[in-house]
Amino acid sequence: MKTKITTALFIAIVISISAFAQNVVNIKIKGSDTVLPLSQKEAETFMKKNKTAKITVTGGGSGVGIAAFVDGSTDIAMSSRKMKMSEKMKLQDAGKAYKEVIIANDALSVIVNPANKINQLTREQIEGIFTGKIKNWKEVGGNDEKIVAYSRESSSGTYEFFKEHVLNNKNYGTAILMMPATGAMVQSVSQTKGAIGYIGFAYMETNVKALKISYDKGKTFIEPNVTNAKNKSYPVVRPLYYYYLTKDANKVKTFIDFILSEEGQKVVNEVGYISLK
């Protein structure tokens, strides 16, 4: 009951604010922390070109963004995962039609400590490590050292993506360490000798080592870099999404067109993600 009142109040405020500024572009974007830096940069560049436009970008996570989207308190939900069935059904129940746009791609790198002599792993080996079946580096050809596997929190879109595409939809092992942020993951991997983790491409730093990955049982190992990600030879690439209501299409069109334009896609590369073309 209380949440309903607050939501109603919030919506009332949002409506009254938006009624004030009807003829200028005024867009609210909310959602994934992965997409956040990209949206911010895009909004900045866009607002420099269109002085009347006003775009507010806030993070909080993919689920937060989509929940706000369902409530109607944001115009665009940014997400690093596809919308879940339960969320789709909520939108359907509310009678809201929506559109999905992919605005950029992100490649995931599997990283280890630079002192680790392993340079490449197959998908099956990574699955074994993260499901807790492989426990020592010597089982995959490394030194006799315990493997310390780091994952992101289950709230992270990256967590879900890694599980779906690398672990073949199996669950993570229970002894996997969960890191609250990508920065913390890089820090921990860089200071733990037996560590292995995964991060978005944009976060790659010199104090950790990215592994080459094989998706064909060890025949070819592909290095994660921009060229390989763009020509799709690197297998772990995920799309980043924007969701908006069909009835808002006119309102958000100029901004989304800008992101998909050549100039907008240049910003994608600058921020460290993989442009669509």
Binding site: S62, G63, S155, L177, M178, P180
Partner: peptide, 30 residues
């Protein structure tokens, strides 16, 4: 470290309730 395992000593990773709420509430579908 936030690994959800039952701790046997002080030298193992653990996951606490507040940390779990803080880390997961943001993405849980309302």
């Amino acid at each position: 470290g936030n690994a959800a395992v039952i701790p046997h000593s002080f030298l193992e990773p653990v996951r606490t309730i507040p940390a779990t709420i803080a880390a997961e509430l943001g993405e849980a579908p309302q």
